[in-house]
Computed example of a mutant assay.
Amino acid sequence: MRTLLLLCFVLLTGFAQAEQKQVFGDYEVHYMGLTSSELDAKVARLYDIPRSRNVGFLNIAVLKKGVSDMPVAWDAKIEGEMSNLIGQKSELEFKRIQETSALYFISTFDFYDQNMYRFHIKVTPEGSKRTFDVKFNQKFYRGE
Rank of each mutant, 00 (worst) to 15 (best):
L92G: 09
D48S: 14
F105W: 11
G56C: 07
Y31F: 15
V67C: 00
S37C: 11
E28C: 03
L63C: 04
S101F: 12
F9N: 13
I106S: 11
S107M: 01
P71E: 04
E126V: 02
G33S: 14
V72E: 08
R130C: 00
K139T: 06
L63F: 15
I106R: 06
P71W: 05
E79Q: 14
D69R: 07
P71S: 10
C8L: 02
Q138L: 08
F24T: 09
E126S: 10
D113Q: 06
S36L: 02
K21P: 00
A76C: 06
D26L: 10
K89L: 06
V10R: 06
M116N: 12
V43Y: 02
A61L: 12
S83R: 14
L46R: 13
T100L: 10
L6A: 09
D75L: 01
R118V: 14
A61I: 10
I49M: 04
K95T: 10
K139Y: 00
F136N: 06
F140P: 02
N54W: 03
E38K: 04
D69N: 07
D48K: 14
K95H: 03
E99V: 12
A76R: 04
A102H: 09
V134F: 07
G33D: 10
L34N: 05
N59T: 11
H30A: 09
L11G: 08
K122M: 10
F57Y: 15
K21M: 11
Y104S: 12
D75E: 11
N115F: 14
M32V: 05
I97M: 05
L58F: 03
K122P: 01
D40V: 02
V29N: 07
Q114W: 00
E79H: 10
I97H: 01
L5W: 01
I121G: 06
E19T: 15
K65H: 14
D40H: 10
L34D: 04
K21D: 01
A61N: 12
M116E: 13
G56D: 06
C8S: 13
K89F: 05
L7N: 11
D69S: 11
F105H: 12
R96D: 08
S101T: 13
F136W: 14
N59R: 12
D69H: 05
R130V: 09
D113W: 00
L6Q: 08
L5N: 03
T131I: 03
Q138V: 02
Q114E: 13
N137R: 10
V23W: 02
W74P: 08
Y117W: 08
L12Q: 13
Q138R: 15
Q20I: 00
F105I: 01
D113G: 06
G66E: 05
Q20P: 01
N137D: 14
